[in-house]
């Protein structure tokens, strides 16, 4: 297994270089280093001298990808791309373009993201599985049909609608929780309720439908028929047999997204004023802070790859027939 993990990690290197290159190219297609300097130095009374000094201090005074003047290996290494990318692979994110330490900010801001993402995942999972099981229990009835219609409708509604609707109903009309905001420690609880409820409701449609499909696939298998033939109650059949076997694809799917929980939810964090990594990324895009954007995209890619490797490993844990080679 360790050989497999090592091989997957080595495969990850070219993927990360590619992601980094694409991010770099996309960013610099619309932003030149001069634009970035102007963004940081402000609109008013900025001189070209100040722009040049700013670029020089941050290493943006080099060519983007190829330095013809340097010659030899320097033609590739004395470039913005190389200088800014190399340290990422050692998880040294450096400083943002406004001068703050990115690693420090990430360590601080991942906790609010997790505070929303973990309960949303767990509660959402519990509700979606329970609801899917219920639909399967009442399969081919009006409850099944009505639920599928409801779930499709819920899937079709934009996430933004849930956010604004949730804030309007629960925060403004019913005045049960603060409309937005965040705090530290236990004081954070009252601020978490609304984003978690919104996150769960927004995700129920798609996840319940998916899990329903998993359960329906299982329920027609031979071992379920055997269980029923043994005289087991339908509840026991569902919870002991169907659920356990259908959990394999569910859990492996969940494992894949676990690392990405760190990255936060872009829109939810922005609307609810939660100082997590999602709003950190959005702010950086708005401020054209390439260093943060690059660091967050890189981190997201790493976590995604880690998630995929964990998924593969989890298969071997939950299904003994699977062997990694």
């Amino acid at each position: 297994m360790s050989a497999y993990i090592l091989r997957r990690l080595l495969y990850a290197l070219p993927i990360l270089i590619g992601v980094n290159l694409i991010t770099f190219l996309l960013f610099f297609v619309v932003n030149s280093p001069d634009d970035m300097a102007r963004m940081q130095l402000g609109d008013k009374r900025v001189t070209q001298e100040a722009i040049d000094t700013w670029k020089g201090e941050r290493g943006y005074d080099k060519p983007l990808l190829y330095n013809a003047a340097a010659g030899g290996l320097g033609a590739l290494t004395e470039t913005i791309f190389f200088q800014k990318s190399l340290k990422l692979f050692a998880f040294d994110f450096g400083q943002s373009d406004s001068g703050r330490d990115i690693g420090f900010d990430i360590r601080q801001r991942m906790w609010p993201s997790l505070a929303i993402a973990i309960p949303t995942l767990l509660v959402g999972l519990a509700i979606a599985i329970s609801y899917a099981l219920m639909i399967v229990f009442f399969r081919a009835t009006y409850i099944d049909v009505g639920s599928v219609v409801l779930l499709v409708a819920m899937m079709s509604i934009s996430g933004l609608f849930y956010i604004i609707g949730g804030q309007f109903l629960i925060g403004k009309l019913f005045r049960l929780v603060p409309i937005s905001g965040y705090d530290t420690g236990l004081d954070a609880l009252k601020f978490l309720i609304l984003p978690v409820v919104v996150g769960v409701v927004a995700g129920i449609g798609s996840s319940t439908r998916l899990y329903r499909t998993f359960f329906l696939e299982e329920i027609n298998r031979d071992y379920v028929r055997t269980a029923r033939a043994k005289g087991l109650h339908e509840r026991k059949v569902l919870f002991r047999h169907v659920l356990r076997n259908a959990l394999i694809p569910i859990l492996t799917g969940v494992v894949a997204v676990l690392p990405l929980l760190f990255m936060g939810a872009l829109i939810i964090e922005s609307f609810f004023g939660v100082p997590g990594l999602g709003s950190y990324t959005i702010d950086a895009i708005n401020r054209q802070d390439f260093s943060i954007v690059r660091a967050m995209v890189f981190l997201g890619s790493v976590l995604y790859i880690v998630g995929l490797i964990m998924t593969d490993l989890s298969y071997t844990l939950v299904d003994p027939r699977v062997r990694l080679s």
Binding site: G171, R175, L176, V177, P178, I179, S180, G181, D183, L186, D187, L189, K190, F191, I193
Partner: peptide
């Protein structure tokens, strides 16, 4: 208990301690 504790004294939607 935690959720009820989070609500505290009215107004429940008060974002300040």
């Amino acid at each position: 208990v935690l959720l009820l504790g989070a609500c505290g004294q009215p107004p429940w939607n008060n974002p300040y301690p």
